[in-house]
Simulated assay, not measured.
Amino acid sequence: MKVHGVFLVAVFFYLTHTQLVKGQFQPHEGCQTRCGEVEIKYPFGISSGCYYPGDDNFNITCKEDRPRIGYIEVQNFYPNGQIQVLLNSTIHCEGKQNISSNDFTLGNYSISTNNKLTLVGCNALAILVTSGNKLYATVCISACESPTAADAKCDGEGCCTTDISDELNNYLVEVGSTRLQLSNQTSSVHHFDPCVYSFLVEEGKFNFSSPEDLKNLRNGKRWEQYMFYF
């Protein structure tokens, strides 16, 4: 299964953690404070004695010069209690093996409401749902019969965006095509829109570019300019 790309998300930890780290605890002298080009900021740290004591949620693994918390790669640490991370997008391609749903479990972290659920594709639907103590769902629907203009906005034609709830830390994103038909003529959009994509991204950081994004949403490093906030 090939993952077409990843987006950046920023995460914040709960207020209880923020209050704890304002106390007297500080990392030991000699602690590693960088992983590759990323500065590791306390209460996060690499190895015992370098992160907030007794809480492995702040334990950073440095592998191949890339900091990680569990399976999640961290891009930046912020003094206001937020981190910026990379997460996979959810992809659906008609007739191909693809990722039509993604589960995300963030433990003691939660997604910031600075992020938006975003969908790129024609006649498509994305849904974000949670489970556990806080049940929540939101939907984004996009429709079109032909490629939109190059300067089109993400306003429901080829691309849509919607707000998310606060304190999301366990959630599922599903994406797929709909049977929505805008006219009496039956036409396929697959020749200019072979796949649909859904992801969380910081508001204002994703600029929809059609027909390029409909044909093949920007891959690789270009995706890394977008941010999610946990």
Rank of each mutant, 00 (worst) to 15 (best):
Met1Trp: 07
Val3Asp: 11
Gly5Glu: 03
Gly5Trp: 09
Val6Lys: 08
Phe7Cys: 05
Val11Tyr: 00
Phe12Tyr: 12
Phe13Lys: 01
Tyr14Ser: 08
Leu15Thr: 03
Gln19Ala: 09
Leu20Gln: 13
Leu20Thr: 12
Lys22Trp: 06
Gly23Glu: 15
Gln24Cys: 05
Pro27Gly: 06
Cys31Asp: 08
Cys31Leu: 12
Gln32Pro: 06
Thr33Gln: 13
Cys35Phe: 09
Gly36Ser: 09
Glu39Ser: 12
Ile40Gly: 04
Tyr42Val: 05
Pro43Tyr: 06
Phe44Gln: 03
Phe44Ser: 02
Gly45Lys: 04
Gly45Cys: 06
Ile46Ser: 06
Cys50Asn: 05
Tyr52Glu: 02
Gly54Ser: 09
Asp56His: 11
Ile60Arg: 00
Cys62Asn: 09
Cys62Tyr: 10
Lys63Asp: 13
Glu64Pro: 01
Glu64Trp: 08
Glu64Gln: 11
Arg66Leu: 08
Ile69Tyr: 13
Phe77Lys: 00
Gln82Arg: 15
Ile83Asp: 02
Ile83Pro: 01
Val85Gly: 01
Val85Glu: 01
Val85Gln: 01
Asn88Lys: 14
Ser89Ala: 09
Cys93His: 08
Glu94Asn: 12
Glu94Pro: 04
Glu94Leu: 14
Gln97Tyr: 08
Gln97Lys: 10
Asn98Leu: 03
Ser100Gly: 12
Ser101Leu: 06
Asp103His: 08
Asn108Thr: 15
Tyr109Leu: 07
Ser110Ala: 12
Ile111Asp: 03
Lys116Leu: 13
Leu117Ser: 02
Leu119Asp: 02
Val120Asp: 06
Leu125Ser: 04
Leu125Val: 13
Ala126Asp: 07
Leu128Tyr: 01
Ser131Gly: 10
Gly132Thr: 02
Lys134Gln: 14
Tyr136Asn: 10
Tyr136Cys: 00
Thr138Trp: 02
Cys140Phe: 00
Ile141His: 12
Ile141Ala: 13
Ala143Ile: 02
Cys144Ser: 11
Pro147Met: 02
Pro147Phe: 03
Asp151Ile: 10
Lys153Gln: 09
Lys153Glu: 10
Asp155Lys: 07
Gly156Asp: 10
Glu157Phe: 13
Gly158Gln: 04
Thr162Cys: 08
Ile164Lys: 04
Ile164Asp: 03
Asp166Tyr: 09
Glu167Thr: 13
Tyr171His: 04
Leu172Ile: 11
Val173Lys: 00
Glu174Gln: 15
Gly176Cys: 05
Ser177Gln: 13
Ser187Trp: 08
Ser188Cys: 11
Asp193Pro: 01
Ser198Gln: 05
Val201Asp: 04
Val201Glu: 00
Lys205Val: 05
Phe206Arg: 00
Asn207Asp: 10
Pro211Gln: 06
Glu212Val: 08
Asn216Met: 12
Gly220Tyr: 10
Lys221Pro: 02
Lys221Phe: 10
Arg222Ser: 13
Trp223Pro: 00
